[in-house]
Simulated scan of single mutants.
Amino acid sequence: MKQMIGLFIGLAILSFFPFYFSMSNGSAEPVSGDGQRLDFHKLENIIRLAESKGKPGPDDVKAPAFTLKATNGAYYSIGGKREKPLVIHFWASWCEACSVEVPMIRKLYEQYKNQVDFFGINVFTEEKPENMEKFIQDNRLSYPILLDEHKHAADLYQLHALPTVFLIDKNGFVLDTFHMIDPLELQEKVGRLAGQ
């Protein structure tokens, strides 16, 4: 009888553990396997690769992995292999340069959306939600806008300025990064990404 009571108590304790761990995480959001942060030397590798217009090798830079919630309520993950290459555009509504650049990003999305995925990442910690929504509507942005509420993605990507764009290939390698470049150069870079 004592063994049966002990077994029952043991099973009750074991069945409580999943509940405890789900409550201690405090979130129903998906947990992502985060990538390592880009460091200065990795950023140098990205610039070197972009200047040479080469393809990444085994020592080149993998895009840090993360998952963020979008304004449409869905979750999107970045990092690792994917069906299409990817353009990531970090922005905020208060950033004047972002207002100048985003119409070109929208135009490129409309041109290449069948060959390239586009994600806008709003640096939400420095943002007023109503300003962000107005920015999205005024610029008619229809690609997913991810909310970087705790600057998690910005920290992983060593973000130092807005706007910042990252180009990522289908294998998850960062091919290029830049701040506010000439529209023709931006078109050329995204066109080259689409052709991979």
Rank of each mutant, 00 (worst) to 15 (best):
Q111Y: 02
T125L: 13
K62E: 14
A63R: 03
P163I: 00
D39K: 03
L14K: 04
G195S: 12
G172Q: 06
A154H: 09
S24C: 05
G195P: 02
Q196L: 08
A63H: 06
S24I: 09
G172C: 09
D34H: 11
E149I: 11
Y75T: 08
D176N: 14
H160R: 14
S32T: 12
E149Y: 12
L43M: 15
D34K: 14
A63S: 14
M23S: 09
F173Y: 15
K53H: 13
F19K: 07
S93G: 08
N139Y: 12
R106G: 02
N45W: 03
I5T: 11
V31F: 12
E185R: 07
I13Q: 06
G35M: 09
H160E: 15
P163M: 03
I5H: 10
G172T: 04
D60M: 04
P129R: 15
L7I: 09
L11W: 12
E188W: 02
T67R: 11
R48D: 15
G57S: 10
F118G: 02
L159P: 02
Y76F: 15
H150C: 06
N171S: 14
K170M: 11
D117K: 04
E130H: 14
E51L: 15
F178K: 00
H179A: 11
K2T: 12
K53Y: 10
I181D: 00
A154S: 15
L146A: 08
P18W: 13
S99G: 09
I121C: 06
F135T: 01
I136W: 11
I168Q: 02
Y109C: 01
K107I: 01
E127K: 06
E83C: 07
P183A: 01
F40S: 11
M180W: 10
F19S: 09
L86W: 04
V190L: 03
F8K: 08
E44W: 05
L167A: 09
C98M: 07
P144V: 10
F16D: 07
H89W: 10
S142G: 07
T67I: 12
E127Y: 07
K55R: 13
T67D: 13
L184W: 01
T71K: 12
Y143I: 04
A194V: 02
D39F: 12
F16R: 07
K107Q: 07
L184S: 10
F66T: 03
I46T: 04
R192V: 03
D148W: 11
A92G: 11
E130C: 13
K69S: 11
L193G: 00
V31G: 11
K128L: 14
H179I: 08
Y75V: 09
Q187K: 07
N25P: 00
A97V: 06
F40N: 08
E29Q: 13
K55N: 11
E126I: 08
L38E: 05
L186G: 01
H150L: 12
P18G: 06
E96M: 13
E51A: 13
Y109S: 04
W94P: 00
E96H: 12
K69Q: 15
L186R: 03
L184H: 05
T164Q: 05
I46M: 08
N45E: 14
Q36S: 11
E110Y: 01
L156N: 05
D148M: 06
A154N: 10
S93F: 02
K81P: 09
